[in-house]
Each structure stands twice: as C-alpha cells, then as structure tokens.
C-alpha cells in the first residue's frame, strides 16, 4: 500500500491502507485527534486496493479488502473512498471482534450512565446520538455499542458519526462546521456526511459507562412510546448483534444480564427536536 495510517478507536486498533492518496488524506483530517495504534499493532487491516495496477489511472473504483471479505461488498467509486474505508472498518469489527458483545446501536453517556439507541438503518439513531452529543452528552459510539463480557459496562467506540440524508441538515444546524467531512452524494445509502465527535468524546474514549436505558427509535411516525417485554427485547438484540452467536455462552450471559437490568422502550417520533425532547423525558423518568 502506498498510503496508510493507523488509528486506535476505543479498544480496537485499525490499519488503513490505500493505493490512492485522497481517502487516506480525508481520514488523516477527520481522525486527527485519535491516537495511533499502540506499538503500531492493529487488530484489523482495511485495504482499499486497485483491482489491477492500471485501473488507478483508467477508471478508479474502490475494492474492499481486509482480514474478512464479504463477497457482496458494493463497488464504490473513488469519490467514495472515505466511505469505503469507514465501511471496511465496520465490516472488520462486525465480523471479527470477539472481546465484547457488539450491538448495532449508537450510545451516549451522562453521569457515568449510558443511553443506547438501536434500530434499523433510517431509524434516526445516528442523528439522535449526534444531536445529544452536542447537548451535554458524551458520544460513546455511532455504529456499534460494545458491551463488556465481564463487567457488562459499555465501552466507548467513538467512530465518526455517519449522518445520512435528512439527518445531515439536522446536525449541521447544531454542530461546528469544522467537524464535518466532505458530503458524499449518491452513495448506496443516499447522501452521507461524516461528523467528528466532540474532542472530549475522543479524549475520554477509554472511560466505560454503565448501561441505563435502551431505546428503539423510529423516525417519521406519530409520537408514541411502548415498553418492550424482556423477551421481545432479548430476541431483537440477538438480531441486532453482529457477534452474539460467535460468542456462545459468554454472549448469552452478557445479554441475559443486560435485558434483566436495562429498561427498553420503543420510541416513535415525527421530527428531530421532538425526538430529542422525548428521549430526555424518558431518561429523566427511567434513570433520573
């Protein structure tokens, strides 16, 4: 690889290499405040490679590579090299990480306690977490929430927040313009813009938090909340976890304790501000 860098994000260390300068330059800017991999050793390697050397000059397209390969990884144009690198890190983490139970969820922290937001793509969890991160909460992570298998605490994994479509403008209105990456148009998920977490979220990435409340937000619905049965919550979390099966008995134990101790609610909301107000009301009601 002609261009590359290493990064430590929470407990995981990555090496990203590329045949092209541009994606690595974008990553260096956006991840400027993150420490390098300790001793240079990375848990995962993400490679953005040209399929053949000459392709770099003829029709640049990015091919995802790394320790784990997904046969159906989408081909992305060079303009989306940054997105390819982010997707590569997500795939490595989702498929290869075994030290924590991984839930596809965003998380924020206040007073040492964690609010976890899970749901499908488009549910608004990234937007809500980013907006809370600008309102006195510490962002613990966007794409993945890491549950410690022994202490049951949430480990910080404050990657760039991946904002999509309507969520971009909502967060642009409240966050410092200098913390945004380039706007990527017409990706497989629509428009995407990355947000660098606030400096304190990066500086405190190694401080865990005790999980206190789990929400399943859904954007674009009439306002409503519903308490989830523990059994429904358990089932949905096994589906939202990328490594529950691989962890075996330890995953079962961690998830059982989580479901037993953390209240879970479904939250429908019609717009960002109303969603934030409802999240903060539920936090006060259930956590204090």
């Amino acid at each position: 690889m002609r261009h590359g860098l290493t990064l430590k994000i929470g407990p995981a260390a990555f090496r990203v290499g590329s045949d092209w300068r541009a994606p690595i330059a974008d990553l260096r800017t956006l991840y400027a405040d993150y420490p390098p991999a300790p001793d240079g050793f990375a848990d995962f390697t993400v490679r953005l490679e040209a399929k053949r050397p000459w392709r770099r000059f003829v029709r640049p397209s990015v091919h995802l590579g790394g320790d784990y390969m997904l046969p159906d990884a989408l081909p992305l144009s060079l303009a989306h090299g940054l997105l390819a690198a982010e997707m590569g890190m997500n795939l490595q983490m989702a498929l290869g990480w075994r030290r924590h139970l991984l839930i596809h969820a965003s998380a924020v922290e206040k007073d040492g306690r964690a609010l976890i937001l899970t749901g499908e793509s488009g549910s608004g969890k990234s937007t809500l977490a980013a907006m809370l991160g600008e309102r006195g909460w510490r962002l613990l992570g966007d794409e993945f929430t890491l549950l410690d298998l022994d202490s049951d605490s949430v480990r910080g994994f404050p990657r760039l927040v991946s904002l999509k479509n309507a969520g971009i403008a909502a967060v642009e209105a409240v966050a410092d313009a200098a913390r945004f990456g380039p706007r990527l148009e017409a990706t497989p998920k629509g428009a995407i813009r990355h947000l660098v977490p606030r400096a304190d979220a990066i500086a405190r990435m190694d401080e865990p938090a005790a999980p206190a409340l789990l929400l399943y937000p859904r954007y674009g619905f009439d306002a409503a909340t519903r308490r989830l049965a523990k059994s429904e919550n358990f089932m949905r979390l096994t589906q939202a976890s990328t490594n529950y099966v691989a962890l075996g008995e330890r995953g079962f134990g961690t998830l059982s304790r989580f479901v037993e101790s953390v209240p879970a609610l479904a939250l429908d909301y019609s717009d960002g501000e109303a969603g934030i107000a409802e999240v903060e009301r539920l936090w006060t009601e259930h956590v204090g």
């Binding site: 049965a229 523990k230 059994s231 429904e232 089932m235 059982s256 479901v259």
Partner: peptide
C-alpha cells in the same frame, strides 16, 4: 442455561 424472561424463557444449550 436458562434465563426466565417475562413471556418466554431464554435457554442456551452448551
């Protein structure tokens, strides 16, 4: 390993 939840039991078969 059995975890009784409210409506269902979660059972992990070692």
């Amino acid at each position: 390993l059995r975890t009784p939840l409210d409506l269902l039991d979660a059972i992990y078969d070692r």
